[in-house]
């Protein structure tokens, strides 16, 4: 879908010639820290931002030439809610359908269905201001669905939500995926990416670091297990040299040391054997966080 996609703001390069493609029905994630270029990419796809150079086609069309037709295919959930504060919950859905030119009768029947989907039926006449963060997010998603889009674009859908609200949202997105809606999601949450995405593109500073399925990425860039040990912030660096030989790869972080190995328990045994006793130790499976750390040398949520 995209080739050599570049966006510059003056001297600043927001996107540095990225290539990627997304298949129909797929759930595709853009993973990276703030400023990686995720939202920029999303906005270019949604034809609300022009590119500096490179090519991109959405459903076979160039967003800069066929903006309105492409936008008619998309449901967009932006990073910051842009619900209409002056209108009620159901009017927000209604008028959004009107923006797409949909007939009133069609919208009216669709509203009931979407309010039900978003679990907002009893809030239909409330003002938007009165909704909680999670409710606003669900309403924004419901609003994006009024035109029955086959591609839903979600820019950091659960940032700022409490765990319960996130799980409700994930459930709704999962249902959409089952109905065959293509999902494009940006996130800087690992668990979100693992839960929702079939395929992931790890981005940093406007470039693609890697692209694969979540498990594929872990297999490719990390070991099966990780051992996290802490010796206290002063001693971590001292003992690190001695630990290096015990595992496949080591990351020294300010607060802890990560040791990558297929059998982390065995590594812990060996640490004890050479006479070192970490304050705390934790054996866990590798996660996308480890992949990200490997690829960029830093953690994702700082």
């Amino acid at each position: 879908m995209a080739k050599g996609l570049t966006k510059k703001y003056g001297e600043f390069i927001a996107l540095n010639g990225i290539d990627f493609s997304v298949q129909k029905g797929e759930s595709f994630g853009f993973l990276g820290p703030n400023g990686a270029g995720k939202s920029t990419t999303m906005r270019i796809i949604a034809s609300t931002l022009t590119r500096t150079s490179g090519d991109i086609t959405v459903l076979g069309k160039d967003p800069e030439v066929s903006g309105p037709e492409i936008r008619a295919h998309l449901g967009v959930v932006p990073q910051q809610d842009n619900l209409d504060q002056a209108l009620s919950v159901s009017d927000n859905l209604y008028i959004y359908g009107r923006y797409f030119g949909l007939p009133r009768k069609f919208i009216r029947s669709k509203i009931d269905e979407l309010l039900d989907f978003a679990a907002l039926t009893d809030k239909r006449d409330s003002k938007v201001e009165a909704l909680s963060g999670g409710m606003k997010r669900r309403l924004t998603i419901a609003r994006a669905l009024i035109s029955e889009p086959k591609i839903l674009m979600l820019d950091e859908p659960t940032t700022g939500l409490d765990p319960q609200a996130r799980h409700i949202l994930w459930d709704r997105l999962f249902r959409l995926k089952e109905q065959g809606v293509t999902l494009l999601i940006t996130t800087h949450y690992m668990d979100e990416a693992e839960q929702l995405c079939d395929r992931l593109m790890v981005m940093d500073k406007g470039s693609i670091m890697a692209e694969d399925s979540p498990s594929g990425l872990i297999k490719k860039f990390s070991t099966k297990e990780v051992l996290e040990v802490r010796f206290g912030s002063d001693r971590n660096a001292q003992v690190a040299e001695k630990l290096k030989t015990l595992c496949e790869r080591m990351e020294l972080l300010p607060d802890r040391i990560l040791l990558y190995a297929d059998d982390a328990e065995k590594v812990l045994d060996e640490i004890h054997k050479i006479g070192l006793h970490p304050v705390t130790s934790l054996v866990r499976r590798s996660s996308l966080e480890d992949v990200f750390l490997r690829l960029t040398g830093r953690t994702l949520v700082e």
């Binding site: 030439v65 008619a72 797409f100």
Partner: peptide
């Protein structure tokens, strides 16, 4: 092919002058 009412409405305007704005 992906179709919905919204797409049909937008595509009906292809080729009209100024249809991008």
């Amino acid at each position: 092919m992906i179709t919905s009412a919204a797409v049909a409405i937008a595509e009906a305007r292809i080729g009209r002058p100024g249809n991008s704005v």
